[in-house]
Simulated assay, not measured.
Amino acid sequence: MVVAIDGPAGVGKSTIAKMIAQSCNFYYLNSGSFYRAYTFLHIQEGKDPMDFPSVLETARQHVLSVDGGRICVEGEDIEDKLHTSEVDRFVAKISAYP
C-alpha cells in the first residue's frame, strides 16, 4: 500500500504521514529526501544548483538507497547531511524542475 500526502512546506505532512504509518504498521518514506540527497550531492560536487540539466546528470551518476528509513548514497548514510541551510535554499527549486 502506498499513501501519498501532497501540500506546501510546513503544514505537517511528514508528521501526519509518520503517525499514519506507525498506526497502520506501514513503512514511512519521505520522498522529499531523494530531492534533498541529489541537491546535497550536486552542491558537494561544487556544481551550480540552478543548472537543472546538470542536477539531473548528478542524479544519474549516483545510486540512492534506503536503509532503516535513512537515505544512503552508494551505501553511505547521508541522512544527517540533508537538512542544512544550503540544501534548504535550493531543494524546492530543484524538486520543481520537470
Rank of each mutant, 00 (worst) to 15 (best):
G46K: 05
Q61G: 12
F26S: 05
R36W: 09
D67S: 13
D51C: 06
F26K: 07
K93P: 02
T84K: 11
C72P: 04
V91C: 13
K18N: 08
F52S: 01
K47I: 02
V87I: 09
G32M: 08
K47H: 08
G75F: 09
M50D: 03
S65L: 00
K47A: 05
K18E: 15
D48F: 02
I78T: 06
Q44P: 02
V2E: 14
A59W: 01
M1C: 04
D88P: 07
I78V: 15
Y27L: 14
L29C: 01
R70H: 10
G12V: 11
C72Q: 09
V73D: 05
N25T: 13
M1T: 12
G7E: 03
A92L: 03
S31G: 13
A4M: 04
F52R: 09
C72W: 05
G32K: 08
A59I: 01
D6V: 12
K81M: 14
A17H: 04
C24I: 04
A96P: 10
Q44S: 07
F34I: 15
N25I: 12
I43W: 09
G46R: 07
D51N: 15
G10E: 04
P8L: 10
S33H: 13
D88N: 15
H42L: 02
I78D: 02
R60G: 15
G75W: 12
G68C: 09
K93Q: 13
C24A: 15
L82V: 03
D77T: 08
G12F: 04
R60C: 07
I78W: 05
I78P: 02
H62G: 01
Y27W: 00
A96Y: 06
R70C: 13
V87D: 12
R36M: 05
K81L: 13
S54G: 02
E79K: 02
T58Q: 07
Q44F: 00
L64S: 05
